[in-house]
Design a protein around this nucleic acid. Structure first.
Length: 489
DNA sequence: CTATGGCACGGATT
DNA sequence: AATCCGTGCCATAG
């Protein structure tokens, strides 16, 4: 069901394996991290080797992960997208650092009398000199909110270092004064703030869960929903949310996100992407680089020493050890399965939706999970699981839910928006239908009306020259950057 | 009378 | 089996 044929190894524990692979598939990289951390802590048979070079294929690991390069054979598949990365590509970066940078660097930073400088001074002493340029790069890439909008792998590529290293630096940055500065999303900023806060004073235990898992709910400002999610009463949820509002700041660079202010900001944002697609922007037939985010760095494997020791296990422990070993083994295999499945899935997806990825919503090719399932010879539900809850980062740095790639009407809706945006005359729905028709999209009049309301666009008569935009707040998109491109979906 | 929104149905998707 | 989506019909607003 998962896959037509599986290796004999996997067949040993068919049900367990299947079930676990399935559940792993559903997890986002963040959730996966929790899972793995837990197992790592509780299971002595499991081992995480921190390598920058994969022990099997000896390729340097650009990104953290259980060597996706060699665990799947896909790297040499002839189809267009590369699923992993070669670190040699040269990036034209905002500033030109060059060989003399290490010295010139501090000066250059010093000129800038602002947030970057402020932070940099705090952390510079802690940093290895080699890491300073990275920190500087991060700091100068912050947006007005103090969030980092540049994907880590891009930084890693530019500096020719593994992403894990960039992450390390980033961690240091995040812990300096405007705490959380440099986080990639409001959510992660808040998580960092929570951690730091917890050092100095007690923090309600559920805060972490609320921010980590319930972030989307949290942003809706509904104590009822939040309470339900956390299994506490509305009043308690309200209290919790007050605490969060008072003590945490999703936009580190802003002094306060004041009490009265709370409705406006906090655009709902996915924590971080599970899949990052980038492209060297210049060339038209650019090669896409797809990175599948793995939450752990290095290789996860069964500790060979543990396996050895299995024979010499003390009588009373032998069962326990055995079980640990099995579990570890299972997890590793399932993880590989998961990675493999995701790689294949993403490969196909990227292949089909190339246009969409590069050129935007209007180019989305309608496509169902079922079709994809057939192509990949996977079960539909497998695809569903893999797709749900995942976030994809596009080359233009927007983060979208993966399911958006399957929205059948997205292209039509986008084009409809274009039409309306460029109308010189308020168009009626019927007129829009004909215009769409002339572009090759045939939909019913009623449908246009539906799309309109979906997009929050007012009916023809009401939007004269002035266009009002209202926003649906439930969609997890990076609203701040997103708005300029298209209206909410 | 025309343009829109509501309700509901049937087929597709999950 | 449950849900989502496009559409048609009809009532209502302008």
């Amino acid at each position: 069901m998962l896959q037509q044929r599986q290796s004999p190894l996997l067949r040993q524990q068919p049900t367990a394996h299947l079930a676990q692979t399935m559940s792993l598939l559903e997890l986002t990289s963040g959730e996966l991290k929790q899972k793995i951390d837990a197992d790592l802590a509780s299971n002595p048979a499991l081992e995480l080797i921190d390598v920058r070079r994969c022990p099997h294929c000896h390729r340097p690991q650009i990104a953290p992960g259980a060597c996706p390069v060699c665990s799947s054979r896909l790297k040499d598949s002839q189809s267009e997208p590369i699923i992993f990365i070669s670190p040699t590509s040269d990036f034209s970066s905002p500033r030109n650092y060059d060989s003399d940078r290490n010295d010139a660097h501090d000066e250059w930073i010093a000129e800038v009398q602002n947030l970057p400088t402020y932070v940099f001074r705090q952390i510079a002493p802690e940093l290895d000199t080699a890491d300073r340029p990275i920190a500087a790069f991060i700091l100068t890439s912050l947006d007005e909110d103090g969030l980092l909008r540049v994907p880590l792998h891009e930084i890693a590529l530019y500096h020719h270092v593994p992403i894990s290293r960039v992450e390390e630096v980033l961690r240091t940055v995040q812990r300096s004064d405007p705490i959380g500065v440099g986080s990639q999303t409001p959510q992660s900023a808040m998580l960092v703030q929570l951690e730091v806060l917890a050092d100095s004073r007690p923090v309600p235990g559920l805060c972490y869960k609320a921010v980590q898992d319930g972030f989307n709910i949290l942003t809706r400002k509904s104590p009822e929903l939040l309470g339900r999610f956390l299994g506490i009463s509305s009043a308690e949820a309200q209290e919790l949310s007050d605490f969060i509002i008072q003590n945490l700041n999703p936009f580190p660079a802003r002094a306060h996100w004041g009490e009265n202010n709370q409705k406006a900001p906090t655009p709902p944002v996915y924590q971080h992407a599970d899949i990052i697609i980038s492209a060297s922007k210049d060339s038209p037939d650019t090669q896409l680089v797809v990175e599948i985010v793995s939450p752990y760095s290095g290789c996860l494997r069964v500790n060979p020493l543990f396996k050895e020791a299995l024979h010499q296990a003390p009588e009373d422990k032998t069962d326990e050890w055995r079980e640990d070993y099995e579990r570890a083994n299972l997890l590793v295999k399932c993880l590989q399965q998961r990675n493999h499945t995701i790689v294949r899935l993403v490969e196909k997806l990227v292949f089909h939706q190339r246009q969409f990825i590069l050129e935007g919503e209007a180019k989305l090719i309608p496509m169902t999970r079922a079709q994809l399932a057939k192509e990949l010879e996977l079960h539909e539900s497998t695809i569903s699981r893999a797709v749900s809850n995942k976030a994809v980062q596009l080359p233009d740095q927007r983060i979208i839910p993966m399911s958006r790639m399957f929205e059948r009407s997205l292209n039509v809706r986008t084009i409809m928006q274009e039409i309306i945006k460029s109308e010189e005359h308020p168009l009626s729905d019927a007129e829009i239908v004909t215009r769409l028709g002339s572009r090759g999209y045939h939909v019913a009049r009623r449908t246009v009306a539906k799309y309109r309301s979906l997009e929050g666009i007012l009916p023809g008569r009401l939007r004269n020259s002035k266009k009002k935009k209202s926003r649906r707040s439930t969609m997890p998109i990076d609203a701040t950057k997103f708005d300029q491109y298209i209206q909410p979906v």
